[in-house]
Design a protein around this nucleic acid. Structure first.
Lengths: 121, 121, 121, 121
DNA sequence: GTGGTCTAGACCACT
DNA sequence: GTGGTCTAGACCACC
């Protein structure tokens, strides 16, 4: 089983449990975590990143609810099958974010080309 | 004086007072609110959007601090002169948002051209 | 605001938080709780039925996730609009349960009429 | 000896050993397993359904306790004589389930006839 | 006062 | 050892 690197920003307004969710969703989307693969137990994850097991539990609950992971009591927690959906959803979310910002910027008079140029910097 | 439409999302993690600040900053950046123009009093604003006056007070304080508005006691609250700074800040914020999303998407294997194509749709 | 009667069975295998969810879902389905109506705060509910606030929070989170309630931070928790869906779902769930049992019983040789007769007793 | 198909739901709150008990009870009730018939050994059953032998042991213990099966050491495990009790118990369980659901549905205003009609579909 | 987050830790059932 | 539930209580931001 992999030892997952979880990136946390304790200053962020985004709660810890949600940052953990995002980290794992990304690993799945990028393919670092593959279908059926086991992820660390609640306790292991908790001690390895220094947060309370309840916090990890909450993250895992959310991920399960989203269909990203499947947990089998007393066995462990595993990446669900059919994770392509997760990747697609992530892409859609990000594209949507960009669209919103682009819309705001065009209201301010910037053209799409202006924006692209500034992104490239 | 305009009757400002303020867009609030009570589910958002962004506090109400900050959403109000953002709304007004955007109106200034886009030019809907112009320099020296008067904006509603705290009490009017509070009752028109159904929020506690203390919340509006906090928003106005922040806006004043940022130099976006100026309060002249017994006269009212007005958009400051020199609002170009507000526009610049907004552009920077949005460009930054886009950069973050682009970064996430390139991790998933999309090229900048892929992304641009999907934005245009 | 109503003082909700919550029926709990501490011996049941169904966890407390889920029993609370079911209680409230039923009140909504039956029409005792109506759209937009405010329900007790987490703390009030917790103290009135003698469980930890975290347990209530979990129930409310699940209800929110299901779209039954809407919580507005610092304002309170409210029954969502569009709760007819909740009623319909509950009916479907119960009908489905019955169908499963009927299927099992017909495997054992009972006719639907046999079953109905025994239900009426 | 039959190769028993055991239906397990690892997400269920019902423990595995109890699900196994239920599966076998049902096979007996329905007549798929007949009196005096031999059933798989603990180890065979364990490996064929991918479960720890201790779990199967617990299930068999319970079934023996209920009088559904009889273990003769060095010979194997067999369905007991007089299995009609199992059938009766199963029928009672299912009828009871239905009664509960009917009760819930009548709270929502459905008549028994409404319910029967929907079951028939 | 309201909800939101998190910790610490206990106890349980199941494998 | 694994997940599941629950308690007790702290601290925070917001209104």
């Amino acid at each position: 089983m992999k030892n997952l690197l979880i990136n946390l920003d304790y200053q962020s307004r985004v709660p810890i449990y949600e940052q953990i969710v995002n980290n794992i969703e990304n690993y799945v989307a990028v393919g670092i975590l593959k279908e059926k693969e086991q992820i660390p137990s609640i306790r292991d994850m908790a001690s390895s990143i220094g947060v309370n097991p309840n916090t990890i539990k909450k993250s895992y609950d959310i991920l399960e609810n989203k269909g990203i992971i499947t947990t089998i009591s007393t066995k462990g927690t595993f990446i669900s099958e059919n994770t392509k959906k997760a990747t697609k959803e992530k892409i859609d979310r990000e594209i949507n974010n960009i669209k919103k910002s682009v819309q705001e910027l065009t209201k301010l008079g910037l053209s799409l080309d202006d924006i692209i140029e500034r992104i490239k910097k």
